[in-house]
């Protein structure tokens, strides 16, 4: 039996906000340690992995590992009509009914909404994702997630976001991280300097650089990755010329959401 409760729907609403526009379905793995979610977009360019440890839940009962594929678009619709302070209960029996029940209860007027979701096939997830050693990355940049989202929006409005493969080039040296894109009639470069601790900003931009690196990524996907800002106010971008880039948002000591995408390479 699986029975979880969150006294605030906010966390799950934010999770769906962070993944449901790029990913249409996801694999949910419930085990004693918590929930591990994985999803891949239909063209297999991006993969997202989310971990919510059992402590993130106000009540967590999972006496047998349970894995299920769920449609994220349907879930997002259900969660959109939930209020932030609704109490969510998630329940599944292993009675082979292949459904999971989400119950939303609004504390003020006791109204209850119940949604049953049928399990769906998941396209190829879960995958085994190795933890690559830090040394494999030429550079890691930590910055405010709101800043990263603003940069993606600026580049998208400038780049010909209409056409499929608008590319953004992320370059890191020891002083700053640059975001560059080419539009129809020109180019745009956004330079983020590493903040000096003396500035004592509430949210620093920090760079760990082993060697200079400059990699090209699909801007549309990067834009979708910036939605992780609903879950954390910091994002860490790990860059390597021969590994998928990792855009990681730590969820206040209960887990993380990580988006993976390979750099684009010269034809």
């Amino acid at each position: 039996i699986l029975e979880l409760r969150l006294v605030q729907a906010t966390l799950f609403k934010n999770v769906l906000e962070a993944i449901s526009d790029l990913f249409s379905k996801a694999n949910f793995d419930f085990s004693g340690t918590g929930l591990e979610l994985q999803a891949m977009d239909t063209s297999h360019v991006a993969l997202v992995a989310l971990l919510l440890r059992a402590e993130a839940f106000n009540h967590y009962l999972c006496d047998r590992d349970l894995s299920m594929g769920l449609n994220l678009a349907d879930m997002a619709k259900a969660f959109r009509c939930a209020n932030n302070d609704d109490i969510i209960t998630i329940k599944a029996e292993e009675d082979w009914s292949d459904t999971v029940t989400f119950t939303f209860e609004s504390p003020e007027d006791g109204e209850i909404s119940i949604f049953d979701f049928d399990f769906v096939g998941t396209n190829g997830v879960p995958l085994e994702i190795p933890e690559f050693p830090e040394s494999e990355y030429q550079a890691k940049v930590r910055m405010p997630s709101a800043k990263f989202m603003r940069i993606c929006k600026k580049l998208s409005s400038f780049g010909d976001s209409g056409d499929r493969d608008t590319v953004v080039i992320i370059s890191v040296d020891k002083e700053c991280v640059n975001f560059f894109t080419r539009g129809k009639t020109g180019t745009s470069t956004i330079v983020c300097r590493q903040t000096q601790t003396v500035d004592k900003p509430k949210e620093p931009t920090l760079i760990e650089m082993k060697e200079q690196v400059s990699l090209a990524f699909d801007l549309r996907y990067m834009n979708s990755f910036s939605k992780g800002s609903t879950l954390s106010d910091q994002v860490t971008i790990s860059l390597s010329s021969n590994l998928p880039a990792v855009f990681e948002y730590k969820i206040a000591e209960t887990g993380y959401i990580r988006y993976y995408m390979l750099p684009r390479i010269e034809e």
Binding site: H44, A46, L47, G124, P130, V167, L262, R264, I265
Partner: peptide
Amino acid sequence: GTKQGNIMSFFKKM
């Protein structure tokens, strides 16, 4: 131009 690698084949190859 540049081309995009497939994340699934990358992780499956590991």
